[in-house]
Computed example of a mutant assay.
Amino acid sequence: MVYQGVLTKMQTEFLDPIAYYLVFENDFINMNQVIGQTIDLKHIGYQCLSCDLNKIIYRQGFCKDCFFDKPVAGDWIMRPELSTAHLDKEDRDLDYEKKVQLQPHIVYLANSSNVKVGVTRKSQVPTRWIDQGAHEALEIVEVPNRYLAGITEVALKDHVADKTNWRKMLQNDIEDLDLVEWRNRLKPFIPDEAKDYFIENNTETELHFPVSQYPEKPKSLNLKKQESYSGKLVGIKGQYLIFEDQTVFNIRANEGLVVELGV
């Protein structure tokens, strides 16, 4: 069976293990069901996730024009501390920014390769943790807007990592850590504006991924250069497809590529 469409991050269900779905305009594939089968991938074009034009993707699935123009690609997306909607101040589109920024946000600890701090909208829990390949996570602060979450993350980054080591995550080179202990250790460093939003008595969330074989030396597939690839799918973790020959393919990092996918 051959499918064709533009890549967007896989949709997920919080099951045991996590369920993954690759969604195209006219088809969707239950990716868990094709683990153990040979997958053929071919890059055949581009489609910007904003303007839908066949233009080379610049970043985050957007062409260069849309990346620097559309509110969905504003700097505050990656740096929540730059959010200004709570001040009624526009970056690119105040209505959009109010809709996204002025809603409950979570500051969390996650363990995928190491303990890291992160920010997500409350509505994106546990999706955000799944996308990062975290095997355990803990909410530590719930605030009413993105700005407060951002300044909390910035304050805590001085004391804990804010990045995932993707190689260690895919190698499953992880150790179980006490995130509750980490939460309590970090509590004194939460900014005064967010201290009242500290979450005191919750427990870790555990996540399990559909992987039958982890790569010892993962090598990243670049479809823009290689154009086509064929390999046996042996697992999915985060937004990565993991193949038997230790090739890994990050769906999220390749959003906007139009592909043919054969199973």
Results as ranks from 00 to 15, higher is better:
126 P>C: 07
112 S>Q: 06
81 E>Y: 02
48 C>E: 01
143 V>N: 01
133 G>K: 07
64 K>H: 14
59 R>D: 01
117 V>G: 01
86 H>A: 04
32 N>H: 08
28 F>V: 11
100 V>Y: 00
133 G>I: 06
128 R>I: 09
126 P>A: 06
62 F>T: 03
163 K>A: 07
123 S>Q: 12
132 Q>D: 10
63 C>D: 01
75 D>M: 10
85 A>D: 10
122 K>C: 01
33 Q>P: 00
128 R>V: 08
34 V>K: 04
32 N>A: 03
47 Q>G: 14
77 I>M: 12
122 K>T: 07
137 A>F: 08
56 I>A: 12
95 D>V: 12
96 Y>D: 11
32 N>G: 07
155 A>K: 08
123 S>C: 09
90 E>I: 03
87 L>M: 13
134 A>V: 05
78 M>W: 07
156 L>A: 00
102 L>C: 12
55 K>Y: 03
38 T>S: 10
155 A>M: 07
60 Q>K: 15
36 G>I: 12
92 R>M: 10
125 V>K: 00
148 L>C: 08
52 D>G: 06
93 D>S: 13
53 L>M: 10
146 R>C: 12
139 E>P: 09
115 V>W: 10
121 R>I: 04
59 R>A: 06
79 R>A: 12
90 E>L: 06
147 Y>R: 14
108 Y>V: 02
58 Y>L: 02
43 H>L: 09
141 V>Q: 00
109 L>Q: 03
125 V>L: 06
98 K>F: 05
150 G>V: 04
28 F>K: 15
71 P>H: 06
48 C>Y: 00
50 S>G: 05
58 Y>K: 02
79 R>E: 13
58 Y>S: 04
71 P>T: 10
52 D>M: 12
42 K>Y: 05
53 L>I: 03
126 P>M: 08
166 W>R: 09
166 W>F: 15
143 V>I: 08
98 K>L: 05
150 G>H: 02
118 G>H: 09
62 F>P: 03
46 Y>W: 15
130 I>W: 01
148 L>T: 03
157 K>M: 15
122 K>W: 05
118 G>P: 06
47 Q>N: 13
41 L>P: 11
42 K>A: 14
119 V>P: 07
91 D>N: 13
80 P>R: 05
135 H>K: 13
49 L>T: 13
109 L>G: 01
121 R>V: 03
123 S>A: 14
141 V>N: 00
79 R>S: 12
66 C>Y: 00
148 L>V: 10
51 C>T: 07
119 V>G: 09
117 V>I: 15
33 Q>S: 14
